[in-house]
Design a protein around this nucleic acid. Sequence first.
RNA 1: GCCCCGAUAGCUCAGUGGAUAGAGCGACCGCCUCCUAAGCGGUAGGCCGCGCGUUCGAGUCGCGCUCGGGGCGCCA
Length: 584
Amino acid sequence: MSDPQQVLSARVQHALVAAFGADYAGADPLIRSSQHADLQSNVSLGLAKKLGRAPRDIANEIVAHLDVADVSEAPEVSGPGFINFTLNGGWIAGQATGLLGDPRLGVPRTEHPRTVIVEYSSPNIAKEMHVGHLRTTIVGDAIARVTDFVGDHLIRDNHVGDWGTPFGMLIEHLVDVGDDSPEAGLLRTDPNAFYQAARVKFDSDPVFADRARERVVKLQSGNDPATMELWDELVELSKAYLRDTYARLRVTLADDDIRGESFYNDLLPGVAEDLEAKGLAWLSDGALCAFPEGFTNRDGSPLPVIIRKSDGGYNYSSTDLATIRYRVDKVNVDRAVYVVGSDQALHFRMVFAVAREAGWLPAGKQFEHAQIGMVQGKDGHRLRTRAGDLVKLSDLLAEGVERARTLLDEAERDTAAPKDGGLDLDAIAEDVGIGAIKYADLSTTRDSAYIFDWDRMISFKGNTGPYLQYATTRIRSIFRRAAIDQADLNGPILVTAPAERELALKLLGFGTVVTQVAATAEPHQLCSYLFEVASLFTTFYEQCPVLKADDEATRQSRLSLCAAVLRVLTTGLGLLGVPLPERM
RNA sequence: GCCCCGAUAGCUCAGUGGAUAGAGCGACCGCCUCCUAAGCGGUAGGCCGCGCGUUCGAGUCGCGCUCGGGGCGCCA
């Protein structure tokens, strides 16, 4: 444990028990950052009423029982009863040195690993991903990486839309054009074009439309080998598109993580039968519906979850219920994080409610909808396909990379270029452009909506991906100039200059932040933290010469501090999935 | 009508019930003979939407409003 907040928390808790008895063993010492000190405890103010004593008296009593001499200067009681801590510089330095030697950089492994499914991305087969999918993909991937890092057993789950009505149309179109045709090739490069071609035929050609409907029936029956073969081909071609897209985005999803809606097809009748048998679902207007407690319609009547449509087909509610059962019964998950758009909030609340009522989702299972805010158009409304407003993912990425390339070309930086001149500017621009776009989606609270704006997505100043990337390249540049292998740097880190002190102190909070992000599934907290690290580093960089430090001990210390910063930044940005160029 | 999310500096956003609410962008003023200026330092800019309540203490919690976005029976 190196985070001073946690260290002091334990110490104050101990003092509370020593001063006021075992009843206070569970009291939160309320260690918070402060403008008046490094950290403060606010606990005595809240205890005043309970103890019937003045807060300042309580604070003094706590301090009298407090043993923090190794960590902090003598604690001071201040104001109405705050206990202020000024950390010992030597302690900070020692902890920072320890961090440098810790492969996990202070991030604890979870004590009781759980099986956690993170469901994310989930695009529709044969449709181009747009900026909305982009966000669930990027945020979900970060959540997955962090979950894995803290030691839970992670299962990535790409719940692709590979089933349902449109597939009759898509299969028939594939039959018409032939699977080796250029048209079929569009599935790999421009899936929307393929989809739209099928759509146009469906709308204009009644014969084709009839074939498509018949094909859906054959598909969903599941016992027509020829249809299944065609469907397989369609999915395989689309997987190639997803592979390329994920590769360019540096998203960790692989083919094996795909478990589409089709996977649960055989389980759907059972969902309907069991709900009916339990008396939780009955026919309403011809459709089999469940009516979970507490949900009402416009007119105040119970709001249904449609399990089976009046035409006998199933929809996504039934699929999601089957998925819950499968995950609980077969996969034995402890937690499932659904990284899906916020417009699905009601759907998930109702589906979870039905699953609980049916006993399929026991209380100990943590199923949660990690809402992703909607991407809106300039009109303040949802970005819609038909509005023509849709920004193609590939265009977005290309624009980001192009802007990065322009900046690179404008910069005259001989220091960045290796002496042989063999700098791969295209590769750097790719990392910077993609990094900027990913970071923009990660750095704001995930459930807040935003209006799509090129400048917001591809910004290179302030709290952005490139700012953080830049900080890492500056550190690497120092090592390169001195021909130092960062692996050889192992301290000791000394803390004398104020900038060194603040920077080293900030590094100690990495573990707490990562733990927090895993618990809340909110990657933006990690972004904020890493931005603070990078900001403090650049201040340090301006104020404290490293290679030209006054003496050898300081030089070694600063080099080691740089190494620690680099490791925190690369690890943190790695958890976010933001690529890091060596130079820029 | 019900439910969800939001409203904080001109703009985009942070803000684990604690002291004087913070960043970035934009604006203005400075800083490259010095490890990368995609950088750094500084200035200006706030009834934290409104009201009531809980609390020793509310941007943060509760209730009620106003405004904006989204969802609410057979698309997913």
